[in-house]
Design a protein around this nucleic acid. Structure first.
Length: 298
DNA sequence: GTCCAGGGTGAAA
DNA sequence: TTTCACCCTGGA
């Protein structure tokens, strides 16, 4: 069954731009798993179509799940209007309109970003999907149609299984995270309702989770709009576009950005990240996205 | 075949 | 405050 609606969202940028790691480009759109449903999502001009492949339970529930995941009820016009003249975000908003911040499952998101440290997107995807296939439950007929394993299943599997899958030194980190969830010292859903900085400190008690990874989890799964993850791309962009000192530390840059962007920090972060990532790719490998490159970018 | 970077973090120097 | 090890995959 299909559901169509008029939405301002670009699926490629939002689903396959480094926020989530379980979406695959198939000929008609993006295929992936959210919770226990398999979806194929497709952009058609101003519309998106949502196709639920396994509709054994409530179709309406599956639609509301994916709408929430895609954050479709939050309008981004407010953000666009306010930052359209910003030196970095302005061109990015024009070039990549429809980029959105997702609301992923917090545990899957935490796991994914623990995997992200000194890693590249293609390998993160490989790791996260291998974990799902090996430890999750099969929910439909596709190669990647598996639910994401719960913390308990990760503990049962043990560190060596993750080493075998190829998570490397991150294996002990995901085990520590699973253990802290399981023993109740961290309750992910509770972090939604407590204050941003407190939630951040709590996540950082997990071994292998520093400020950057904590901020990704807060922004991409816990709906903390004041979160601004700073990685190497973002740091370079902040120095280039906003004149921050060349030797500024990531943590200081994050404080500066949160102050500037306030309640729009997480969205601003995505637009800056997307632009910087694609322009640095252009410099390395060529291809599209030359249109945005201006001034010192040349 | 070799080299290198990739959405970092923690521990040692 | 700075430096280094940690895994391993894909592209040059």
């Amino acid at each position: 069954m299909k559901f169509e609606s008029k939405e301002n969202i670009d699926l490629e940028y939002s689903l396959d731009g480094g926020q989530a790691f379980r979406w695959w480009n198939v000929d008609i759109g993006y295929r992936g798993v959210v919770g226990t449903h398999v979806y194929i999502l497709e952009n058609n001009n101003d519309f998106i179509s949502i196709n639920v492949l396994n509709e054994n339970d409530d179709f309406q529930k599956a639609i509301s799940t994916i709408r929430n995941y895609l954050s479709l009820n939050n309008k981004i016009d407010d953000f666009v209007n306010l930052w359209i003249d910003d030196p970095c975000i302005g061109p990015s908003v024009r070039g990549y309109s429809g980029l959105r911040v997702l609301k992923q499952d917090p545990w899957e998101c935490l796991f994914s970003f623990i995997c992200s440290s000194t890693n590249n997107v293609s390998r993160i995807k490989l790791n996260v999907n291998d974990v799902s296939i090996l430890l999750g439950e099969k929910i439909f007929d596709g190669k990647y149609d598996f639910s994401f394993p719960k913390p308990e299943q990760c503990i049962v599997a043990g560190e060596n299984v993750f080493r075998k899958i190829g998570l490397g030194f991150r294996s002990k980190y995901v085990i520590d995270a699973a253990r802290k969830i399981l023993d109740g010292s961290i309750i992910l859903n509770e972090l939604k309702s407590i204050e941003y900085l407190e939630a951040r400190d709590k996540l950082m008690t997990i071994n292998g989770v520093g400020g950057k990874i904590a901020d990704c989890v807060l922004a991409f799964s816990l709906d903390k709009k004041e979160s601004f993850p700073v990685d190497r791309h973002i740091l370079r962009a902040l120095i280039k576009w906003y004149g921050l000192p060349k030797n500024i530390m990531p943590e200081q840059a994050a404080i500066w950005a949160r102050k500037r962007f306030g309640r729009h920090s997480s969205l601003a972060n995505q637009y800056i990240f997307h632009r910087e990532r694609l322009s640095s790719r252009y410099h390395m490998w060529g291809g599209k996205h030359r249109d945005l490159i201006i001034d010192e970018d040349k």
